[in-house]
Write a protein that binds this DNA or RNA. Structure first.
Lengths: 343, 343
DNA sequence: TTGTAGGCGTTATCAT
DNA sequence: ATGATAACGCCTACAA
């Protein structure tokens, strides 16, 4: 028995290697296609022998349900879409893990689309997901324009996992409080003796802007000047040079990788960490533990946020019409890159 | 005009907020659904006024094509699936970028499925992709059993981007030569003076095994003993302790993050790099530049491999039946973590 | 328990 | 240039 289906009555001896459909399975098993459908899905009301027959036929033919056909007739796809702008990023990874685990409880699978740091591409991914008729959409980026969010939310339960300025009411938002996180981290730096703290970022996202705000608040409260140093992703040297000037005695970075750059530059310039320069990262990725000195970092409940996103989608599908607005307070994980050197 | 479709003739005044279909668009525009279909897709043979009418109707209704229906009737989905076991990994990121750029030339979009380090989940993702009827499948993991690969290859053009032992002929393989890469790296360590090199890994994949082989070959050729140190992902302390023993004077790590751990441990134990311990990573991720000292690393043409994978899929779809077996030779990028300290 | 028939939204093949 | 109409593969009343 070859695996390619061979329907004898066909007038074409050189038949194309067509994928077997449920009709083929039914014919092979000698039953109607509706019975085959029920048997394959484990429906009740199918006799033992029939079920077995159908299953064997499906196995012999290598049958695979066509999810396009199924989605079409059932109106749901069993797909949760996640759109983010950087897949090589521990922060996003944890969110996706949360989404996946929660999706598993719904027997849904997760599709990841990534915009590669391009807002346009990000929107295209969202369109693709919607046209695929995902049952819910999780957006992990603050680069999506409000109107796109609004359209998306009108078509499918949509959850945004970042802070934005004015989220439309049709979408839910579940975010970590970036203002609070940055403020807390900056206060930590100041309490440990910093008098010239700064915020370093390579991102222009709303998320990064919110962190700027947190730094500002902490500095104002302490009566200190505040500084933001913005770099473009390409600029490598500038960041290292800035660190070398010794202009700041403590920096909060937009993420752990940028913090790694800073630590590196400090080494090169002979600066002690945390003695000459305190450093805090953001996202508390695995990397933070492996740097030298180990990196203090702001931790967000990413996994939990991913889970909650899927829960919010479920609620929307079950009729909720009010918007979820959840905020989580991040935690500062203190390691060796901050604090008073001799304490 | 509200955005929810309101078909006047409907007998239900409390109509469900159904998604508008092409029939709604056609009715709204006063044309047949076939004409609407052609107009929306930009087919030739539609008069200017009709096209405009249809487009306006679609815009007014917020129409979105249902890709399930389209996929069903056309037999192609316009989707390329990528399955990998770790999305938070720069190595994979670059591959995906290559896949995406090449997919764009086919007007296809890319879906990412990730197995979260579970072989079972990985296979489930592959099944999902196949049932979604992706037009091609790219697998970036050496954990997928041969029989699963074979089945997948029988159903859809499939490309494996890792080295495995006996790839079935129905799938294409495009891989970087891990034996050669590890051998080259090890030879570099030996040339720089190492007499006790070792290979450090947290992975038990076929990829990692191949690298073991490369280390072995280099050591044998130099008449040196060879060593492999295998750790489980959870074990943190063991790796640090091993480094502290000073048992080895040079290590090749399975990836850059593990190399970061080693560097960190060396710092903690007061070992000089590269004087007391040379370190090489694998994958040449962004991180390698930011470590201190900067990390030598084995670079693979990941982006290119991603591109080639899609090209191979295209060729399969156009009738090629022989298997592609491409190998790329990796390059060693030398930085400050290896070499003779005073040269 | 099993079969029949209709429809999901789209494209494509015919006519007109 | 436009319009019927028949698929695509599956699910689901409804009937037997």
């Amino acid at each position: 028995m070859s695996r390619t289906p061979q329907h004898a009555p066909g007038p074409e001896p050189e038949a194309e290697a067509r994928r077997p459909t449920i009709v083929d399975v039914a014919r092979h098993a000698g039953v109607s296609k509706s019975l085959a459908s029920r048997a394959l899905r484990g429906d009740a009301g199918v006799s033992g022998p029939s079920r077995l027959l159908v299953q064997q036929a499906a196995g012999a033919l290598g049958y695979r349900p066509n999810s396009a056909a199924r989605s079409l007739v059932r109106g749901v796809s069993g797909l949760i879409g996640v759109v983010l702008n950087e897949i090589g990023n521990q922060h996003h990874t944890e969110i996706v893990a949360g989404v996946e685990d929660q999706a598993r409880t719904l027997n849904a699978s997760v599709l990841i689309g990534h915009g590669g740091h391009s807002a346009l591409e990000l929107c295209r991914q969202i369109d693709t997901m919607i046209e695929l008729r995902v049952d819910g959409l999780v957006i992990v980026s603050s680069w999506v324009p409000g109107e796109v969010l609004e359209r998306a939310g009108g078509e499918v339960p949509t959850v945004l996992l970042t802070q934005v300025d004015n989220p439309p009411p049709v979408i839910d938002t579940i975010a970590s409080d970036d203002v609070a996180g940055a403020r807390m981290a900056t206060e930590h730096l100041i309490n440990a003796g910093s008098r010239r703290p700064a915020y370093l970022t390579r991102s222009r996202s709303a998320t990064s802007r919110a962190r700027t705000e947190g730094v500002l608040l902490a500095c104002q409260a302490a009566g200190l000047p505040w500084a933001v140093e913005q770099f473009d992703p390409g600029q490598q040297r500038q960041l290292a040079e800035l660190v070398g000037t010794g202009r700041y005695d403590a920096v909060l970075c937009n993420n752990d990788l940028t913090a790694a750059e800073v630590i590196r530059a400090a080494h090169d310039h002979g600066l002690r960490i945390p003695g000459d320069l305190q450093v805090i990262g953001y996202d508390n990725t695995r990397l933070a533990r492996f740097l030298f000195p180990s990196l203090s970092s702001v931790d967000q409940p990413q996994y939990l946020m991913g889970q909650r996103a899927v829960a919010a989608i479920t609620e929307r599908r079950e009729g909720r019409t009010t918007a979820v607005r959840e905020f989580y307070t991040p935690q500062l994980v203190e390691r060796a890159s901050t604090g008073q050197p001799h304490n």
